[in-house]
Design a binder for these strands. Structure first.
Lengths: 348, 348
DNA sequence: TTGAAAGCGATACCAA
DNA sequence: TTGGTATCGCTTTCAA
């Protein structure tokens, strides 16, 4: 059993209250006594008991804000689910989580959501899936610098901001992985079209495409890459674009579906009836996509760990706020999961 | 905030002690009052507050036993690390974990380790990586039936025992996945040799081989599978066997290394100098194997989630013991991870 | 059969 | 600048 605040008090011949004040630098302790207390605490490796901490906080829970966008997409739904689950675990530690969810890609809206959490709800930490905009970046930096609020980014990063850390995929590496898999199934030749939705505010998407293109150029110079851009990452839009693509390019060897709208892509392939010719690699480990892999329409699925993207940000913030424990890493890259017909049974 | 035992007491007009006795069936409560208390608890969805639970238990921690074998192998080391980490998290819940580790494959020793934990240490739950032996199976059943002790299996299962659940890979599916990958890289023809250590007491190993063989037969009938059995899952033994294999079969297309001894296999391939001809698929996400993938010696690595295999058994046991919450699933299959050069950067 | 009280570890607040 | 006390939710023990 670790040492407790009571034992430190006894060892130093003072009361618990004094120890508490000394360890939290609240003043009102004679400097030499404070020093002695901190010394003893360090010597015995004092760590506050979390059950005690939680219980004493029961009437004044800590609040953590979560800001997500694109919540209508199935993958972000999974992240949100994981986040809610972890939130209910954290209620054990007397920590409340407040959600602000958006379906749009509007940086102004995101900034105002953050402001609302800070001003109205007095949060002690923020987990955000940031839009790729200076407005958001500046707001994050302001929170960190002027309010000492810990901020973590999830799913998509703003690497130049002053966030504590990032939890999510290395999207560039995911794109490179897709390239290698495409080389394997096509034999390294033919025309491939990545299909990508609007990526202006969504760094993750453009990184996947860049990784794919750069890797194909290196390992399969005989593959011709011809991106298809769609106006919205949504099924009908994706379907129309895929239909046009398949008709315009009958000898297409492969499609790399980078952004949501997967159902639209799959329907278009089925409708044009060349399911057996076009190789297909999809992102996002959602039930519908798993079914397409099982049924043989898609060769591979690239998954990312929704569970970890939802839970780890809250865990890290909670540790930071309660125990002042800084995250060990700057980037917590989640797995780049490769799923095919043979290893998805336990996920369905 | 969930309802507390105090609030239930007030609602029912009795004291906390009475509520406690009623909810835990400790007797000494008038039946009609007990019924009323349980009714109110159910109505308001009472769940004990874990911080309170933990704190009150601080002086009498719950004890959980962990029994592992093959601890000298690098993968089990990772499982053990994860297990230790989770154990230190659980100390928050006033739960102590006692380890019994073995390097051998002796069922008698495993049984006596379990007995020691039960008799001498009075554990309230057991997580075990079981040997494939009736001795172990009977012992597990005895604990469950005669002592109502919850038992979970990890890494390797005894599906016919009365364990609460299994946490680990679906090894048969892992073997099938290896088969598909081998088909991809070899083009579906040639001679392939799975290399496998002693699997008499180690169900996981024989399942991988069976899965591999059955799937190859289905999807790549032109591949000839020719297993190599080695006497010990250890490097020098594996090296000798691999050298003999490569010399005896110069046109070998692929090796599927199923059990530890990977370093030996890799050294043998490098020594005979045909690193560029033989395709290689390895199990186990350990640092040395990751390096072989990075360096191009191995085509694929099949990983399993050591983290989850170490932590989930303890979490589930703790929930079961403290909250009487039964695991939701009979099998918690961990990911069958496919790793190649492009998606391992974040793991190294 | 029931209730009251102490204790677990930490924090907050009031009184000295 | 300090110490004492109440509080959080639950279990355990002792007394009525």
């Amino acid at each position: 059993m670790a040492i407790t605040i009571n034992q430190i008090a006894q060892l130093c011949g003072v009361s618990r209250g004094t120890v508490d004040r000394a360890l939290h630098n609240k003043g009102n302790v004679r400097p030499e006594i404070a020093a002695r207390i901190r010394e003893v605490a360090a010597e015995y490796g004092y760590t506050p008991n979390r059950a005690g901490l939680a219980l004493s906080r029961a009437s004044h829970p800590i609040k953590i804000g979560v800001v997500l966008h694109s919540v209508q997409t199935p993958f972000i739904q999974l992240v949100l689910d994981a986040c809610r689950r972890e939130a209910s675990n954290l209620s054990v530690f007397s920590t409340d989580v407040i959600f602000r969810l958006s379906r749009s890609l509007d940086p102004l809206e995101q900034v105002s959501m953050i402001e609302d959490l800070v001003e109205q709800h007095n949060i002690s930490g923020l987990a955000v899936m940031p839009l790729h905009s200076m407005l958001v970046e500046n707001k994050i930096n302001e929170l960190v610098e002027q309010r000492q609020l810990p901020v973590v980014t999830l799913n998509t990063d703003l690497p130049n901001s002053r966030r504590l850390c990032y939890i999510g995929q290395d999207n560039y590496a995911a794109g490179r992985t897709a390239a290698e898999l495409m080389r394997l199934v096509t034999g390294g030749k033919g025309i491939i079209s990545p299909i990508i939705g609007p990526s202006e505010y969504h760094l993750a998407y453009s990184e996947r495409l860049a990784g794919f293109q750069s890797e194909i150029a290196q390992i399969a110079p005989d593959i011709h890459v011809q991106p298809t851009h769609i106006a919205e990452d949504e099924n009908e839009c994706a379907r129309q674009a895929t239909l046009a693509l398949l008709r315009g390019c009958p000898d297409l060897s492969g499609i790399y579906a980078i952004t949501p709208g997967y159902e639209g892509v799959c329907r278009a392939i089925l409708e044009t009836g060349n399911a057996h010719r076009v190789h297909l690699i999809l992102h996002d480990e959602i039930p519908a996509n798993l079914r397409h892999v099982r049924d043989g329409l898609a060769d591979f699925l690239l998954g990312q760990d929704a569970e970890m993207q939802g839970s780890l940000p809250l865990t890290l913030l909670c540790d930071y706020i309660q125990l002042r424990r800084r995250p060990k890493k700057n980037n917590y890259f989640t797995d780049i999961r490769i799923l095919l017909r043979h290893n998805i049974a336990s996920l369905m």
